[in-house]
Nucleic acid binder design. Structure first.
Lengths: 134, 134
DNA sequence: ATTGACATTTGCCATTTGGCGAATTATAAT
DNA sequence: ATTATAATTCGCCAAATGGCAAATGTCAAT
Protein backbone atom coordinates (compact mmCIF):
# COMPACT_ATOMS: atom_id res chain seq x y z
CA UNK A 1 0.00 0.00 0.00
CA UNK A 2 1.28 3.39 -1.04
CA UNK A 3 1.71 5.53 2.05
CA UNK A 4 1.39 8.77 0.06
CA UNK A 5 -1.93 7.83 -1.43
CA UNK A 6 -5.27 8.93 -0.16
CA UNK A 7 -7.17 5.82 0.90
CA UNK A 8 -10.59 5.12 -0.53
CA UNK A 9 -13.37 4.07 1.80
CA UNK A 10 -12.97 0.47 0.69
CA UNK A 11 -9.26 0.55 1.41
CA UNK A 12 -9.88 2.04 4.83
CA UNK A 13 -12.39 -0.68 5.59
CA UNK A 14 -10.01 -3.43 4.48
CA UNK A 15 -7.17 -1.92 6.45
CA UNK A 16 -9.25 -1.66 9.58
CA UNK A 17 -10.53 -5.22 9.15
CA UNK A 18 -6.96 -6.51 8.95
CA UNK A 19 -6.04 -4.39 11.96
CA UNK A 20 -8.80 -6.20 13.83
CA UNK A 21 -7.40 -9.53 12.53
CA UNK A 22 -10.72 -10.47 10.92
CA UNK A 23 -11.34 -12.34 7.67
CA UNK A 24 -14.14 -11.17 5.45
CA UNK A 25 -16.06 -14.23 6.57
CA UNK A 26 -15.65 -13.38 10.24
CA UNK A 27 -16.69 -9.79 9.68
CA UNK A 28 -19.64 -11.11 7.69
CA UNK A 29 -20.74 -13.20 10.66
CA UNK A 30 -20.33 -10.36 13.12
CA UNK A 31 -22.09 -7.80 10.96
CA UNK A 32 -24.65 -9.85 9.07
CA UNK A 33 -23.34 -8.49 5.74
CA UNK A 34 -22.48 -11.06 3.06
CA UNK A 35 -18.79 -11.83 2.44
CA UNK A 36 -19.17 -11.18 -1.27
CA UNK A 37 -20.58 -7.73 -0.64
CA UNK A 38 -17.83 -6.95 1.84
CA UNK A 39 -15.26 -8.00 -0.73
CA UNK A 40 -16.76 -5.80 -3.40
CA UNK A 41 -16.91 -2.87 -1.03
CA UNK A 42 -13.24 -3.30 -0.17
CA UNK A 43 -12.32 -3.56 -3.84
CA UNK A 44 -14.32 -0.45 -4.61
CA UNK A 45 -16.79 -2.31 -6.85
CA UNK A 46 -19.71 -1.36 -4.61
CA UNK A 47 -20.33 1.62 -2.38
CA UNK A 48 -21.87 0.71 0.97
CA UNK A 49 -25.24 2.15 1.89
CA UNK A 50 -25.89 3.70 5.27
CA UNK A 51 -27.54 0.51 6.45
CA UNK A 52 -24.42 -1.51 5.67
CA UNK A 53 -22.13 1.07 7.28
CA UNK A 54 -24.15 0.92 10.42
CA UNK A 55 -23.78 -2.85 10.55
CA UNK A 56 -20.03 -2.94 10.03
CA UNK A 57 -19.10 0.04 12.20
CA UNK A 58 -19.28 -1.84 15.48
CA UNK A 59 -17.29 -4.97 14.57
CA UNK A 60 -14.67 -2.79 12.85
CA UNK A 61 -14.33 -0.55 15.89
CA UNK A 62 -15.50 2.60 14.12
CA UNK A 63 -17.63 5.29 15.66
CA UNK A 64 -20.74 5.46 13.47
CA UNK A 65 -20.49 9.19 12.89
CA UNK A 66 -16.84 8.81 11.94
CA UNK A 67 -17.54 6.08 9.40
CA UNK A 68 -20.48 8.03 7.94
CA UNK A 69 -18.22 11.04 7.57
CA UNK A 70 -15.54 8.92 5.85
CA UNK A 71 -18.21 7.69 3.46
CA UNK A 72 -19.24 11.27 2.75
CA UNK A 73 -22.72 10.76 4.13
CA UNK A 74 -22.24 13.16 7.02
CA UNK A 75 -20.41 16.41 7.17
CA UNK A 76 -17.38 16.29 9.45
CA UNK A 77 -18.43 16.44 13.11
CA UNK A 78 -17.00 19.79 14.22
CA UNK A 79 -18.86 21.89 11.60
CA UNK A 80 -21.97 19.99 12.68
CA UNK A 81 -21.66 21.56 16.08
CA UNK A 82 -21.46 24.99 14.49
CA UNK A 83 -24.57 24.23 12.52
CA UNK A 84 -26.26 23.21 15.69
CA UNK A 85 -25.66 26.66 17.09
CA UNK A 86 -27.00 28.24 13.95
CA UNK A 87 -30.13 26.14 14.03
CA UNK A 88 -31.31 27.99 17.11
CA UNK A 89 -30.92 31.46 15.62
CA UNK A 90 -34.62 32.09 15.16
CA UNK A 91 -36.24 31.32 18.49
CA UNK A 92 -32.87 30.76 20.10
CA UNK A 93 -33.72 28.35 22.86
CA UNK A 94 -36.48 26.12 23.96
CA UNK A 95 -38.51 27.56 26.78
CA UNK A 96 -37.61 25.48 29.83
CA UNK A 97 -41.15 25.31 31.10
CA UNK A 98 -42.52 24.21 27.75
CA UNK A 99 -39.84 21.56 27.53
CA UNK A 100 -40.64 20.28 30.99
CA UNK A 101 -44.36 20.05 30.37
CA UNK A 102 -43.97 18.29 27.06
CA UNK A 103 -41.32 15.89 28.32
CA UNK A 104 -43.89 14.45 30.69
CA UNK A 105 -46.06 13.34 27.81
CA UNK A 106 -45.66 10.29 25.61
CA UNK A 107 -43.87 10.82 22.31
CA UNK A 108 -47.07 10.34 20.35
CA UNK A 109 -48.69 13.21 22.21
CA UNK A 110 -45.63 15.42 21.84
CA UNK A 111 -45.66 14.92 18.11
CA UNK A 112 -49.41 15.31 17.91
CA UNK A 113 -49.01 18.71 19.51
CA UNK A 114 -46.54 19.67 16.82
CA UNK A 115 -49.01 18.53 14.22
CA UNK A 116 -51.72 20.75 15.70
CA UNK A 117 -49.28 23.66 15.86
CA UNK A 118 -48.46 23.18 12.22
CA UNK A 119 -52.18 23.23 11.43
CA UNK A 120 -52.69 26.38 13.47
CA UNK A 121 -49.81 28.11 11.73
CA UNK A 122 -51.36 27.30 8.40
CA UNK A 123 -54.68 28.74 9.51
CA UNK A 124 -53.04 31.82 11.05
CA UNK A 125 -51.41 32.53 7.70
CA UNK A 126 -54.82 33.17 6.19
CA UNK A 127 -55.77 35.80 8.76
CA UNK A 128 -55.21 39.41 7.57
CA UNK A 129 -52.94 41.50 9.82
CA UNK A 130 -55.77 43.89 10.67
CA UNK A 131 -57.85 41.06 12.02
CA UNK A 132 -54.93 39.96 14.13
CA UNK A 133 -55.01 43.25 16.03
CA UNK A 134 -58.58 42.71 17.14
CA UNK B 1 -53.89 13.77 11.70
CA UNK B 2 -54.29 10.77 14.00
CA UNK B 3 -52.93 11.77 17.38
CA UNK B 4 -52.36 8.17 18.44
CA UNK B 5 -50.07 7.40 15.54
CA UNK B 6 -46.32 7.59 15.48
CA UNK B 7 -45.17 9.69 12.55
CA UNK B 8 -43.20 7.94 9.85
CA UNK B 9 -40.06 9.53 8.46
CA UNK B 10 -41.96 10.65 5.39
CA UNK B 11 -44.62 12.27 7.50
CA UNK B 12 -41.99 14.04 9.59
CA UNK B 13 -40.32 15.32 6.45
CA UNK B 14 -43.60 16.61 5.03
CA UNK B 15 -44.52 18.19 8.28
CA UNK B 16 -41.19 19.91 8.57
CA UNK B 17 -41.39 21.08 4.97
CA UNK B 18 -44.77 22.64 5.65
CA UNK B 19 -43.43 24.16 8.83
CA UNK B 20 -40.77 25.81 6.72
CA UNK B 21 -43.52 26.94 4.33
CA UNK B 22 -41.89 25.23 1.35
CA UNK B 23 -43.52 23.45 -1.58
CA UNK B 24 -42.01 20.23 -2.83
CA UNK B 25 -40.74 22.21 -5.82
CA UNK B 26 -39.02 24.78 -3.66
CA UNK B 27 -37.41 22.11 -1.51
CA UNK B 28 -36.37 20.35 -4.71
CA UNK B 29 -34.59 23.49 -5.89
CA UNK B 30 -32.90 24.07 -2.56
CA UNK B 31 -31.80 20.49 -2.15
CA UNK B 32 -31.23 19.31 -5.69
CA UNK B 33 -33.54 16.33 -5.14
CA UNK B 34 -36.31 15.81 -7.68
CA UNK B 35 -39.86 16.81 -6.71
CA UNK B 36 -41.19 13.41 -7.64
CA UNK B 37 -38.74 11.66 -5.35
CA UNK B 38 -39.55 14.04 -2.51
CA UNK B 39 -43.23 13.33 -3.01
CA UNK B 40 -42.69 9.60 -2.92
CA UNK B 41 -40.55 9.87 0.18
CA UNK B 42 -43.24 11.86 1.94
CA UNK B 43 -45.88 9.35 0.90
CA UNK B 44 -43.76 6.48 2.13
CA UNK B 45 -43.38 4.98 -1.36
CA UNK B 46 -39.63 5.38 -1.24
CA UNK B 47 -37.17 5.41 1.61
CA UNK B 48 -34.48 8.10 1.28
CA UNK B 49 -30.86 7.08 1.06
CA UNK B 50 -28.20 8.75 3.14
CA UNK B 51 -27.21 10.90 0.18
CA UNK B 52 -30.70 12.28 -0.13
CA UNK B 53 -31.02 12.86 3.59
CA UNK B 54 -27.83 14.84 3.58
CA UNK B 55 -29.18 17.04 0.80
CA UNK B 56 -32.53 17.77 2.39
CA UNK B 57 -31.32 18.20 5.96
CA UNK B 58 -30.10 21.77 5.50
CA UNK B 59 -33.09 23.26 3.66
CA UNK B 60 -35.44 21.54 6.12
CA UNK B 61 -33.54 22.89 9.08
CA UNK B 62 -32.55 19.47 10.41
CA UNK B 63 -29.26 18.65 12.00
CA UNK B 64 -27.81 15.85 9.85
CA UNK B 65 -27.22 13.52 12.77
CA UNK B 66 -30.73 14.01 13.94
CA UNK B 67 -32.26 13.27 10.57
CA UNK B 68 -30.06 10.20 10.17
CA UNK B 69 -31.21 9.01 13.56
CA UNK B 70 -34.84 9.56 12.63
CA UNK B 71 -34.23 7.48 9.51
CA UNK B 72 -32.71 4.74 11.62
CA UNK B 73 -29.31 5.08 9.95
CA UNK B 74 -27.58 6.28 13.11
CA UNK B 75 -28.24 4.84 16.48
CA UNK B 76 -27.63 7.88 18.70
CA UNK B 77 -29.50 11.18 18.45
CA UNK B 78 -27.57 14.45 18.28
CA UNK B 79 -25.63 14.78 21.54
CA UNK B 80 -26.43 18.47 21.85
CA UNK B 81 -30.14 17.96 21.80
CA UNK B 82 -29.90 14.92 23.99
CA UNK B 83 -28.11 16.96 26.61
CA UNK B 84 -30.70 19.67 26.47
CA UNK B 85 -33.39 17.08 26.69
CA UNK B 86 -31.76 15.66 29.79
CA UNK B 87 -31.80 19.03 31.50
CA UNK B 88 -35.58 19.11 31.23
CA UNK B 89 -36.17 15.68 32.61
CA UNK B 90 -39.22 15.98 34.81
CA UNK B 91 -39.93 12.29 34.63
CA UNK B 92 -40.04 11.78 30.85
CA UNK B 93 -38.09 12.58 27.81
CA UNK B 94 -38.52 15.26 25.20
CA UNK B 95 -38.65 13.97 21.66
CA UNK B 96 -35.66 15.43 19.76
CA UNK B 97 -37.80 16.37 16.79
CA UNK B 98 -40.36 18.11 18.95
CA UNK B 99 -37.63 20.01 20.79
CA UNK B 100 -36.07 21.11 17.55
CA UNK B 101 -39.29 22.34 15.97
CA UNK B 102 -40.29 24.28 19.04
CA UNK B 103 -36.89 25.86 19.58
CA UNK B 104 -37.28 27.48 16.19
CA UNK B 105 -40.44 29.26 17.25
CA UNK B 106 -40.77 32.49 19.18
CA UNK B 107 -41.46 32.03 22.88
CA UNK B 108 -45.09 33.10 22.49
CA UNK B 109 -45.67 30.24 20.08
CA UNK B 110 -43.77 27.82 22.28
CA UNK B 111 -45.99 28.65 25.22
CA UNK B 112 -49.08 28.47 23.07
CA UNK B 113 -48.24 24.79 22.78
CA UNK B 114 -49.20 24.32 26.41
CA UNK B 115 -52.63 25.63 25.58
CA UNK B 116 -52.83 23.20 22.69
CA UNK B 117 -51.80 20.36 25.00
CA UNK B 118 -54.47 21.34 27.54
CA UNK B 119 -57.02 21.49 24.75
CA UNK B 120 -56.10 18.02 23.52
CA UNK B 121 -56.28 16.66 27.04
CA UNK B 122 -59.64 18.29 27.57
CA UNK B 123 -60.92 16.81 24.36
CA UNK B 124 -59.55 13.39 25.31
CA UNK B 125 -61.36 13.61 28.64
CA UNK B 126 -64.65 14.22 26.93
CA UNK B 127 -64.23 11.20 24.70
CA UNK B 128 -65.37 7.88 26.16
CA UNK B 129 -62.58 5.31 26.45
CA UNK B 130 -64.22 3.13 23.83
CA UNK B 131 -64.12 5.97 21.33
CA UNK B 132 -60.42 6.50 21.98
CA UNK B 133 -59.69 2.99 20.83
CA UNK B 134 -61.21 3.55 17.40
C1' DA C 1 -68.63 27.69 -16.39
C1' DT C 2 -63.42 28.04 -18.47
C1' DT C 3 -58.51 29.02 -18.30
C1' DG C 4 -53.94 29.37 -16.60
C1' DA C 5 -50.47 28.71 -13.24
C1' DC C 6 -48.71 26.02 -9.85
C1' DA C 7 -48.34 21.76 -6.98
C1' DT C 8 -48.41 16.97 -6.57
C1' DT C 9 -48.62 12.38 -8.27
C1' DT C 10 -47.73 8.59 -11.52
C1' DG C 11 -45.50 5.72 -15.34
C1' DC C 12 -41.40 4.26 -16.66
C1' DC C 13 -36.69 2.99 -16.72
C1' DA C 14 -31.59 3.43 -15.75
C1' DT C 15 -28.57 2.68 -12.13
C1' DT C 16 -27.00 0.88 -7.89
C1' DT C 17 -26.99 -2.06 -4.03
C1' DG C 18 -26.79 -6.61 -1.73
C1' DG C 19 -27.02 -11.62 -1.41
C1' DC C 20 -26.87 -16.61 -3.25
C1' DG C 21 -24.14 -19.89 -5.13
C1' DA C 22 -20.33 -21.19 -7.99
C1' DA C 23 -15.58 -20.50 -9.33
C1' DT C 24 -11.03 -19.31 -8.27
C1' DT C 25 -7.13 -18.46 -5.33
C1' DA C 26 -4.41 -19.01 -1.18
C1' DT C 27 -2.65 -21.71 2.52
C1' DA C 28 -1.49 -25.58 5.40
C1' DA C 29 -0.73 -30.43 6.00
C1' DT C 30 1.02 -34.59 4.21
C1' DA D 1 4.28 -33.13 -5.58
C1' DT D 2 -1.12 -33.78 -3.96
C1' DT D 3 -5.11 -32.89 -1.10
C1' DA D 4 -8.16 -30.49 1.89
C1' DT D 5 -9.70 -26.42 3.79
C1' DA D 6 -10.22 -21.56 4.16
C1' DA D 7 -10.55 -17.14 1.99
C1' DT D 8 -11.69 -14.30 -1.71
C1' DT D 9 -13.68 -13.27 -6.09
C1' DC D 10 -17.13 -13.54 -9.77
C1' DG D 11 -21.74 -14.40 -12.37
C1' DC D 12 -26.12 -13.41 -11.92
C1' DC D 13 -30.40 -11.36 -10.59
C1' DA D 14 -33.99 -9.41 -7.34
C1' DA D 15 -35.03 -5.33 -5.02
C1' DA D 16 -34.65 -0.57 -4.14
C1' DT D 17 -33.48 4.07 -5.26
C1' DG D 18 -33.82 8.37 -7.97
C1' DG D 19 -34.90 11.30 -11.95
C1' DC D 20 -37.39 12.62 -16.45
C1' DA D 21 -41.57 13.53 -18.46
C1' DA D 22 -46.37 13.15 -18.53
C1' DA D 23 -50.71 13.07 -16.11
C1' DT D 24 -53.62 14.70 -12.62
C1' DG D 25 -55.14 17.76 -8.94
C1' DT D 26 -55.76 22.39 -6.81
C1' DC D 27 -56.65 27.12 -6.67
C1' DA D 28 -57.41 31.79 -8.22
C1' DA D 29 -59.02 34.84 -11.79
C1' DT D 30 -62.27 35.76 -15.31
Amino acid sequence: MDSGKILSLGEIIRQQRLMMSLTQGELAKKSGVSPSHLGRIEKGERFPSARILRRIAGPLGFDENELFALAGYLSSPSPGIAEEGASYVGGGRLDPYVGKVLSQEPVEVQRAVIGVLSLLKGIAKGIPQERLKD
